[in-house]
Design a protein around this nucleic acid. Structure first.
Lengths: 340, 340
DNA sequence: TTGAAAGCGATACCAC
DNA sequence: GTGGTATCGCTTTCAA
């Protein structure tokens, strides 16, 4: 026998009418009291009666009813497909949520794994969010942005490698990272540079532009770029290392620090000297890079702060007309250690 | 000048009444058509007219209005404070979301960073979720569970180290992990065992029970347990390594593989032989452990599958009376490699 | 200072 | 087959 013998299962959810009845006032008065409506003066005894009644019944207002009446919500929707991994991403995410809530928004992540563009947009639009901040995990189209805006979204913001028509796109130029890495390697005299392309689904959104940036940086200097597909496991890395000498590369940009660790280990196990025979550089500047031997060179990434983005959202909600710009969205700089 | 010259900003959001007007039918008919109501037969031409009108207006139904009318939602709320990091957690999370959506639930993560028990529960209850699955990042009390249930939540499930009164608690016994690690070390002849306690906020929910498990395992065999506070940076690790000899430990359970990597590096830099002088074991069985030298021993953790948990949620929603049990929630087993 | 009532958008019963 | 209409819970204008 449970401690709460289904008292809750049967009993209907209390409404403001129940509170009004118990307090012996009208529903209007309940609303005034619980929302501290300043335009109306309610006597202190009444206020107390209402509050006590609400407390006793365990009354919680119904957000749907409220926003239906109000004609708008304060919900900011963050679609997520794959839960982002990595400290950079999660810190940014936490900051954003925190800052938005301080601005009195309700932050909601909508699990959209497996939803495609328009289908996803419809699902989000049903909730009538006042703003949508997408991280590019779900591909948005011009049309889906329109659906969202027509459903009342004041701000549709995409962060990601690609620009999305109709939305306020904050382009995080991933190509800058690849470019940065390759420039660093070239500056240190390398001329035949591998670029690791992770095979993990979802990462191509980042890896493709990074490769493109690598190519751009290489083309200026006449260095050769060689894409290297790699899945995140030891076998794949060992296989790549086994054919390393025939690739005739003298450097590799390994997508990020974790892939760099994997590949560097495999290279060392195959008796390829790092950085003597092959220089290695990662990206993200994780702590683990400093723990490796040789210490891993990397590309440090500065992301826009969540607070900054929250202010952008708020601005767009309050003044849908003007679209403020954020420029220094993402910075990248090479950090030289020992592996390059 | 923008491509969409604020056409959307002014134009009101289309409702089913607008669709009805455009299609020349009543709102009822619109509802029937768009919901494929089988109890009512609508002629094909009418259906087409309605669909076309909806399409043309970009009509998206209003979830709040619908659920207000229906008296319930299909929303499963997953409160999140810190975005969970680590592949184990995120895979589980993705699975759960995916499985719930297949069961036709709307999965919503509610960013609750900085909210405390009752305040959080109220905020969640306003959305009238049909189920809440909490990962223990926000401390729930008996009272907050009641608030949720009284607001109509059919299932309140907590996953985490602690049991929560009133909720259906799936206790993930973290102590098993610490116990497992220490048993392994003891079995290999170690008697003075350090247990790393990460100082990162939020982790104490996991580290405390793991320490407790370590103590339990040690007490049977007379081994000594020494808690070792450590923050996740090189300085802290170096400081710990510097006073390592005076601690007179012959083994350490380093909380997880990442902390193990950090500490092992510091120990090696301080000329402490691993595993000769000190054995090291981590937890989580991450790939990185296999890349270290010596290869890192670890505790492999099997989590309940998201699909399994989704079915539990669904069951509780459909039959609020009975509460099915899940037992083999989390398994832990030591994996011996080279560091221990 | 308080109450009555309209209305937000969608649905489902009951007539026609 | 299709159309009126009451209803969900809440806020807010207007009257008392």
């Amino acid at each position: 026998m449970s401690q709460t013998p289904k008292q809750s299962a049967e009993r209907p959810v209390p409404t403001s009418a129940d509170v009004a009845r118990l307090a012996g006032v009208s529903r209007a008065t309940v609303s005034y009291v619980l929302n501290n409506t300043s335009a109306v003066r309610i006597s202190e005894p009444t206020r107390r009666r209402v509050r006590e009644a609400a407390e006793e019944l365990g009354y919680v207002p119904h957000a749907a009813a409220r926003s239906l009446r109000a004609g708008h919500t304060r919900m900011v929707l963050l679609p997520t497909a794959h839960v982002p991994v990595g400290p950079l991403y999660s810190q940014f995410f936490n900051e954003l949520q925190w800052a938005l809530r301080r601005l009195d928004y309700t932050v909601v992540q909508y699990g959209s794994l497996g939803l495609e563009g328009d289908e996803a947009a419809r699902a989000w639009a049903e909730l009538r969010p006042v703003a949508v901040v997408s991280f590019g995990e779900v591909a948005l189209t011009r049309h889906s942005v329109d659906v969202l805006k027509r459903s009342g979204a004041k701000a549709v913001i995409t962060l990601g490698p690609r620009r999305v028509e109709g939305a306020h796109s904050l382009v995080m130029d991933q190509s800058e990272i690849g470019s940065c890495a390759v420039s660093h390697l070239v500056a240190r005299g390398r001329r035949a540079i591998g670029v690791v392309m992770p095979e993990q689904p979802g990462l191509e959104l980042f890896s493709e532009p990074r490769l493109e940036g690598a190519r751009r940086a290489a083309s200026v200097t006449g260095a050769r770029i060689e894409p290297l597909p790699l899945s995140y496991d030891e076998e794949s890395a060992a296989a790549l290392a086994a054919r390393w000498r025939e690739l005739e590369l003298d450097a590799v940009y390994a997508y990020n620090d974790e892939h760099a660790q994997l590949l560097m280990r495999a290279l060392q196990d195959a008796d390829i000297d790092v950085p003597g025979a092959t220089a290695v550089i990662g990206a993200d500047d994780l702590l683990l890079g400093r723990l490796l031997r040789p210490r891993l060179s990397t590309v440090h990434i500065d992301m826009v702060t969540g607070r900054r983005l929250a202010e952008l959202v708020d601005g767009m909600v309050r003044e849908p007309g003007d679209e403020p710009e954020i420029h220094d969205l993402m910075g990248a700089r090479a950090v030289h250690r020992e592996s390059s």
